[in-house]
Nucleic acid binder design. Structure first.
Length: 569
RNA sequence: UGGGACGUCGUCUAACGGUAAGACUGCGGCCUCUGGAGCCGCGUAUCGGGGUUCGAAUCCCUGCGUCCCAGCCA
């Protein structure tokens, strides 16, 4: 897209149209910011980033990139009680991993504490702010409520000099936490509660992750955010819908101060079915041990889904697909999974793995013989080449791939039936061996030597192809299967007196200890991704070691049989 | 009951006064050495009621519904 000619058709690199993009297009056309597009991604370092933040990151970085603009990474660190460097580090890592680059524009609201303080003093001088001695409880009472106007604080008309003196002494640490605040003098009768003399600075004798004990007063979000945007000459300050009510205050501060005025634009935050996207609640899951950490593969955090095996490309494609609007809705989890499969299908090497092994003996196959069968690494990508997989008389197949009494439409192995062993031979089941308890522990087959590699010279067809590993050559692994963390589409929908914890899915993690893998997987590196044929996409977990391979199921393959079976019930 | 915002297929998004389109899902079929992938086809929507207009998802009025706001959190 050529910024000097915004009406030209979007280039192929252009992002999808949305109302924020339209606003930028128009601003470019009217030369509102001299052709500049400068956005920012402003996380508070009080938790890990999640898929909802990815939407914001893609929007902010994507839009700026499209129009040749810039995006700053700015930590909104004005509340020392909740912020930690661990979160700062994870956030930077996540943004990079997602594929975005803030170059040399890494900022912190705390960088601006000095300027912010000066501006607060300006506000006092202009008679637009005052020091208030009301307690938090009293402030609440004076504020009024949704239908009743508030009443002025008794400290509202203090003299400028007294305000200046008191504010400076607040800064100097002379007063205890909560004893006083600096408030903007606006309108206690405003129907917008945010305009009823909002607190601008509060006293907090807390150690800040960057400024230590330098400050004992900290600016509130509304004051710090817009003024930080102004300092950085942000053009479009994109935030979520709940800040819509704050925009008048955002505007008020920059106007009173007479400084550069960025424009705040609000869009709908991401909601995903069966998922919670609230840092507060995710923190609760971590702290109370409902998951194994911020990067638990069941978590919707970027660290979690990355560990699970999701790719940055898939997430970016998803963010592109969901669009941006002001409608409050919920995206189906299935759409995210669709994009994950789509990306993984293209890039994942195929491999054979048996999750729940069943011993299969080919009675007419020579004892002790081993053949190396050639297998395609990725049918979507011929350049991925082939590999050799050992085949022998005793194999492991999936328990699900044998039924003594096959239901209708079940095409896999059963007594008397012939199937193809992928890249192997056609085999016909002769009989099953059962334990005293009656469970099938071993099945016996005969093979057709003429079908080596998986094709019958006589052209006969089989209804199904199943995967296998050679029992003597396979390697062991632990495989972690994940299901939705919550059982309800909306985890917040609960019975009286309960909270979202009640909707936790007790089966969100299933550990399969005795999986058998083809030997090519030996030494697979943490983070590497594979398709286990017919099962799904799996990624080597960070818990994995050479001695003990651990895989996460990223997402299953679409399963037509599962659907048929489910429908039958 | 004050204020702010939002209502288009099951879900999300487009259509900017001129044939309601796409994606996901679902359902059929084709193809297949993954019941994967791919391909083809089908289905369902403008919140209600008035108005303006040759023509309304779009503009106006009105009603209804949903979300957000009463932190010294962001």
């Amino acid at each position: 897209m050529n910024p000097s000619n915004p009406s030209a058709p979007p280039s192929p690199a252009a992002g999808p149209s949305n109302f924020v993009r339209d606003i930028i297009l128009e601003d470019l056309q009217t030369n509102k910011y001299q052709g500049r597009v400068h956005t920012r991604f402003p996380p508070e370092p009080n938790g890990y980033l999640h898929i909802g933040h990815a939407k914001s990151i893609c929007l902010n970085f994507g839009l700026a990139a499209e129009f040749g603009g810039k995006t700053n990474l700015r930590f909104d660190d004005t509340n020392p009680e909740k912020e930690e460097t661990e979160y700062v580090d994870s956030i930077m890592e996540n943004v990079k991993w997602l594929g975005f680059d803030w170059e040399d524009r890494l900022f912190y609201a705390s960088d601006y504490f000095g300027q912010l303080y000066q501006w607060a003093v300006d506000l006092i001088r202009k008679g637009k702010a005052y020091v208030c001695d009301l307690t938090a409880d009293q402030v609440r009472q004076y504020r009024g409520n949704l239908t009743e106007a508030g009443k002025p604080s008794p400290y509202r008309d203090r003299s400028t000099n007294e305000n200046l003196d008191l504010f400076e002494r607040m800064k100097n640490g002379e007063f205890p936490d909560g004893s006083r605040t600096l408030r903007a003098k606006i309108d206690m009768a405003s129907p917008n509660l945010n305009m009823r003399d909002p607190v601008t600075y509060r006293i907090l004798h807390a150690d800040h992750h960057r400024t230590g004990s330098t400050w004992c007063i900290y600016p509130m979000y509304d004051f710090a955010h817009g003024e930080s945007d102004s300092i950085e000459k942000i053009t479009h300050s994109i935030c979520t819908l709940e800040f819509e009510d704050h925009r008048p205050l955002y505007d008020w501060y920059v106007e009173q101060l007479g400084i550069y005025h960025p424009q705040q634009i609000e869009f709908d935050r991401l909601n995903l079915t069966y998922t919670l996207l609230s840092k507060r609640k995710l923190l609760q899951l971590v702290q109370n041990g409902h998951v194994r950490g911020w990067d638990d593969p069941r978590m919707p955090t970027l660290s979690g889904i990355r560990r699970r095996g999701y790719t940055p490309e898939a997430i970016r494609n998803f963010c592109k697909a969901i669009g941006v609007s002001k409608t409050n809705g919920s995206i189906e989890l299935g759409l995210l999974e669709h994009h994950v499969r789509e990306d993984l299908n293209r890039r994942s090497p195929r491999v054979m793995a048996v999750l729940r092994p069943l011993r299969l003996v080919i009675d007419n196959y020579p004892e002790g013989q081993v053949e190396e069968m050639e297998a395609v690494n990725n049918p979507e990508d011929p350049s991925a080449g082939t590999r050799r997989v050992p085949f022998s008389r005793v194999l492991s197949i999936e328990q699900d791939d044998f039924r003594e009494d096959p239901p209708k439409q079940y095409y896999r192995l059963s007594p008397g039936r012939e199937v193809r062993l992928r890249y192997g031979y056609f085999v016909t089941c002769t009989h099953a061996v059962k334990s005293p308890a009656g469970e099938v522990v071993e099945i016996h087959c005969t093979y057709d030597p003429a079908t080596r590699g998986g094709n019958a010279p006589d052209g006969r067809k089989v209804k199904s192809t199943i995967h296998w590993v050679s029992a003597a050559h396979s390697i062991d692994a632990e495989v972690r299967l994940y299901d939705n963390l919550f059982t309800k589409e909306d985890p917040n929908q609960t019975e009286e007196g309960q909270d979202f914890i009640a909707n936790l899915n007790p089966h969100s993690l299933e550990v399969v200890a005795g999986a058998k893998l083809e030997p090519s997987l030996a030494g697979a590196a943490a983070g590497s991704r594979y398709q286990f044929e017919r099962l799904g996409y799996f990624a080597v977990d960070s818990d994995s070691s050479a001695a003990r391979l651990v895989f996460n199921r990223t997402v299953g393959l679409k399963d037509a049989w599962a659907k048929i079976e489910k429908r039958g019930k």
